[in-house]
Design a protein around this nucleic acid. Structure first.
Length: 576
RNA sequence: CGGUGAGUAGCGCAGCCUGGUAGCGCACCUGCCUUGGGAGCAGGGGGUCGCUGGUUCGAUUCCAGUCUCACCGACCA
């Protein structure tokens, strides 16, 4: 490719509205341009990287026996009404009507469409297992699109759906996809973790997220430093609580604690450690149901765990009026003792072993000390509702400690069970001629997001450092002075030779000063740069610079093509 | 959705308080010069100041409305 004939509109200054590095660099490198909030043009260079990654995904999907197809992005409302998600999905689902007033939506995901196809075509157990995938544009009307391709509204996704005769067979399909995902992200040279995850709005029984580690990641994850346990913090189990104290129970005392509203204030005021206090929270459902949650003072509530435990669709902190009505106390002095109105009290498991603790007295400026569960108040259920913290013991191996990371969710695999097949009545006949419900799984990879995550993980102050498998070009040839016919001839020959060998080369033949070309080459992240200049050429040499390491090699004209080809070939083979 | 802030040339911004039809840097075009890390000189093109209405002789500037965009959003009982 001739740079002068191609289209790479690079930007010198960092656009002011780009917050994260990958967004800034993709704009500056001329890979993307914003069309509207969360909606982007993929410019030629950006598209090349996306296609590279898509092809890696495609290869691994095919190897794992998934079959490619393509579904429409516009979907009829009826299917969504049938699955029950038309009402459930909320504003993220972009809905509209056609000229006949028939309702449609832009597909945010394709369980309904694929399940509809399968129920029409699949009749027998002999036709399974089946796994269909597509690489296609999705639309989700996100509340707050941000970070460029990281959280767009329109985005490219690979989604796959498996269909099996029973749960055990579905587990095998899940396993195959899990392994394929591991290979995909390994091939891209990414530092990532596969973590246990909540199933969220997609539903289903269990799932893993694939998280690229990056400080700018929107998710918090933990992993054990001894065993393979890793989980999204939303999902991460806290370690089993151990041993209760055998301290003697002391008499309950009410203490005046004026204006002491936070755990830190109260603990400091009473000269106790915050882990000998109990934090009392009141939560409400949308319907107005209330629940009280108790946690050790230095712990934090995992709202998702509480919500899942209660089986509520929605959970939020109770309003001050709601709190006053059930406890009789303003926020800051809440506790489980002497409630005005009976509400369920859910306590974290750790609370069970605490003795002589401090809690709010449900009275302004008053706390109790020497409070003991069972004697002074009752708990409806003890259950794990706290957010794990770095340094917690691993819930699996017990011996390891949990480490915390920030992660970017680039892939997600779910066991769906029969959630959609039941709703849409996707059945088959088993060997005995009996009708059975199909077991499903679904598997997604954010294509644009993965490329962005790769940039997030591979860049320096000069720009992107693309891993060769997803770089838009393998290498570039830079002619230092285009007016020098000797330089141009030598550069062109190298360029043509490499192209002939199937290497993707960007030939920077622009009539620009060398500094401009070097800056652009660094910015757009070309992994290997071949510089042809008059000085080196006088000695029969060209310079080869490796973007990732900064390594500079002086190679003769005779050896440069084979050396570069070998290097690229090795990098690509290594990633297969 | 709520809070905050911003819309002036392709990009980044100034001007607005104190109304008189707009400026800077980068980018772009022409010429000269230059060619190993975003050079220099000279000349030039480009803006109904987000939109609508109001006040005024006159509005980018003041007022009202509206649209768009960006950032933040329980850190807690």
């Amino acid at each position: 490719m001739l740079y002068s004939r191609y289209f790479i509109p690079t930007i010198k200054e960092t656009p002011s509205d780009a917050e994260v590095v990958s967004h800034q660099l993709m704009l500056r490198a001329g890979m993307i341009r914003k069309l509207a909030s969360g909606i982007y043009n993929y410019l030629p260079l950006g598209l090349r990287s996306l296609r590279k990654f898509e092809n890696i995904v495609r290869e691994e999907m095919n190897k794992a026996d998934a079959i490619e197809m393509l579904m429409p992005s516009v979907q009829p409302a009826e299917l969504w009404q049938e699955s029950g998600r038309w009402a459930f999905y909320g504003k993220e689902l972009l809905r509209f009507k056609d000229r006949k007033e028939a309702e449609f939506c832009m597909g945010p995901t394709h369980e309904e469409v694929i399940t509809d196809m399968v129920r029409r075509e699949i009749k027998s157990y002999r036709q399974m297992p089946l796994n269909f995938y597509q690489i296609q544009t999705k639309f989700r009307d996100e509340i707050r699109p941000r970070f460029g391709l990281m959280r767009g509204r329109e985005f490219i996704m690979k989604d796959a759906y498996s269909f099996d005769v029973d749960s055990a067979a579905a587990d095998l399909s899940y396993e195959k996809m899990y392994n394929a995902y591991m290979r995909i992200f390994e091939r891209c040279g990414l530092n990532f973790r596969a973590v246990e995850a909540d199933t969220g709005s997609i539903g289903g029984s269990s799932s893993h997220e694939f998280m690229v580690l990056a400080d700018s990641g929107e998710d918090a994850i933990v992993s054990c430093n001894a065993c393979r346990y890793a989980a999204n913090v939303e999902k991460a189990e806290s370690p089993l609580f151990t041993a209760s104290s055998d301290a003697a129970l002391e008499a309950l005392v009410k203490v005046s604690t004026p204006e002491m509203k936070t755990i830190a204030d109260v603990a400091a005021f009473m000269h106790v450690a915050s882990n000998t206090t109990i934090k009392t929270l009141v939560y409400a459902s949308e319907a107005g149901d209330l629940v009280m949650a108790l946690l050790r003072g230095d712990h934090e509530l995992n709202e998702l765990k509480l919500k899942n435990h209660l089986g509520w669709d929605d959970i939020q902190m109770a309003s001050e009026e709601q709190i006053l009505a059930c406890t009789g106390s303003p926020v800051g002095f809440l506790g489980p003792i002497g409630l005005k109105r009976e509400i369920p009290v859910i306590a974290d498991r750790v609370v069970q072993g605490m003795t002589n603790v401090v809690v709010g007295a449900n009275e302004k400026d008053q706390h109790f000390k020497n409070v003991n569960c069972g004697r002074d108040f009752d708990v409806s259920t003890f259950v794990d509702i706290r957010i794990v913290a770095a340094g917690d013991a691993c819930p699996r191996c017990q011996s390891g400690k949990l480490e915390m990371w920030r992660g970017i969710e680039v892939g997600h695999v779910f066991k769906l069970g029969t959630k959609y097949s039941k709703a849409l009545n996707a059945t088959y006949l088993d060997a005995n001629g009996r009708e059975q419900i199909i077991f499903m799984g679904c598997y997604g990879i954010g294509i644009g997001r993965t490329v962005a995550a790769a940039i997030e993980q591979n860049h320096d102050e000069n720009g992107i450092i693309f891993p060769i498998p997803i770089a838009p070009f393998h290498c570039s040839v830079v002619a230092v002075n285009t007016k020098d016919s000797g330089v141009m001839a030598a550069a062109e020959e190298i360029y043509l030779c490499l192209e002939k060998l199937g290497i993707e080369v960007l030939f920077d033949d622009r009539d620009e000063r060398p500094g401009v070309k070097f800056k652009d080459n660094d910015l757009i992240g070309i992994p290997i740069r071949i510089v042809v200049g008059s000085k080196g050429l006088a000695e029969g040499n060209v310079e080869v610079k490796i973007r990732s390491t900064g390594e500079v090699l002086q190679l003769s004209l005779g050896e440069v093509v084979s050396a570069v080809t070998l290097r690229i070939g090795t990098a690509l083979a290594h990633s297969q």
